[in-house]
């Protein structure tokens, strides 16, 4: 599909929201509590947070929720009965206000859930999502999308990408996919014809800080480096970096039972936790934090490119912002690039 460019006036965004609501769409948009933002089911346009460089949590939750029931089970005299998730129950969702680094992260996450095993639940959830990306006109010292192949106006992953056209507050809407087009069809008159073409001057400027290709090559011989120990000494081994990351996909499967019935649920897990790799025997192959930190970087910059042909990092900078001890991934990647093996 050719990208169709339209103009959306400042006031039209709210009208669009209302029209979508009238068409009974569920809209997940940034919502702020205690100064931290995440994507929530939103009923009113006014409740949507604005002005954020990046939301605290990523939008991956929409297809890979922190907690998801896989099946129900119950035990009776007749035996065990099991009921799986009804994929038809998954609602249509509009994901509103996603930054390009999150939108492109959906592709990276999908590559994991479509690898050897096709994850039906994830695939179905995602198929119901229409992504409204919003380009970045600002960035901060933690952003580095341009170093990992992205950019502040990247259309990858978005169904429609909105770019703020300066002070007046109008938007350029790039309609990228059929899904995006279906939304435009609901509100034709809000998407005006336009001959505006260049959006670059409205985007944040973000110089490239390292080369992800170089990092990948470097990592091939970096497994035994002392650098991992140096970098990770202050790491506390929590799950903050993984849980806010748009591409971290590790999960745990747990049975939550009450008496004779219960559910099997999938919930987020993190390679940073000390128990993540503990074997039943008690042996832990990653028994120090440096091994766990190494796994985090290797997985994203070596194993994923090798096996899935994508990098596991979109440069959103969330992990650096969320880390309680200032483990700044950008700084660490740069020092990996600079250190001699």
């Amino acid at each position: 599909m050719n990208i169709d460019k339209r103009l959306v006036r400042k006031d039209s965004l709210e009208k669009l929201f209302d029209i979508l609501k009238r068409n009974s769409k569920t809209i997940y948009a940034p919502f702020t509590k205690n100064g931290k933002s995440t994507f929530r089911d939103t009923e009113s346009f006014g409740a949507i947070s604005t002005g954020y460089i990046q939301t605290t949590e990523s939008a991956k939750d929409i297809a890979f929720p922190r907690t998801e029931k896989l099946l129900d089970f119950s035990k009776s005299k007749e035996g065990m009965s099991v009921k799986g998730t009804d994929l038809n129950d998954i609602p249509d969702v509009i994901l509103w206000g996603v930054r390009p680094c999150d939108a492109s992260g959906i592709g990276e996450l999908s590559s994991i859930f479509n690898w050897d095993y096709k994850d039906e639940i994830y695939i179905n959830r995602l198929s119901k999502v229409t992504v409204f990306g919003f380009s970045c006109s600002k960035s901060d010292e933690y952003c580095f999308c341009t170093s990992v192949g992205g950019n502040p106006g990247n259309t990858a992953g978005s169904d429609i990408l909105f770019t703020l056209l300066g002070e007046e507050g109008d938007y350029l809407a790039e309609i990228i996919t059929e899904k995006g087009l279906a939304v435009v069809d609901l509100a034709q008159n809000l998407f005006e014809k336009t001959d505006i073409s260049g959006k670059e001057k409205f985007l944040a400027e973000l110089p490239v800080k390292f080369s992800h290709e170089d990092i990948r090559l470097k990592l091939d011989k970096f497994f035994e480096s002392k650098e991992w120990i140096e970098q990770s000494l202050r790491c506390l081994g929590c799950g903050a970096c993984a849980y806010v990351c748009p591409t971290c996909a590790c999960f745990d499967i747990q049975d939550e039972a009450h008496g004779k019935k219960g559910s099997r649920v999938r919930c987020w897990d993190s390679c940073g936790f000390s128990h993540f790799t503990v074997h039943t025997s008690g042996y832990n192959p990653r028994n120090v934090q440096s091994a766990r930190w190494r796994q985090r970087i290797m997985h994203k910059f070596s194993y994923m490119p090798e096996r899935l042909s994508v990098y596991g990092c979109t440069g959103c900078g969330r992990c650096s912002r969320a880390c309680p001890v200032d483990m700044n991934i950008l700084e660490h990647l740069i020092s990996i690039q600079e250190v001699t093996v």
Partner: peptide
């Protein structure tokens, strides 16, 4: 009441 609920989002 969980696990009657299907999904928990943030």
């Amino acid at each position: 009441k969980y696990p009657e609920k299907e999904v928990i989002h943030g």
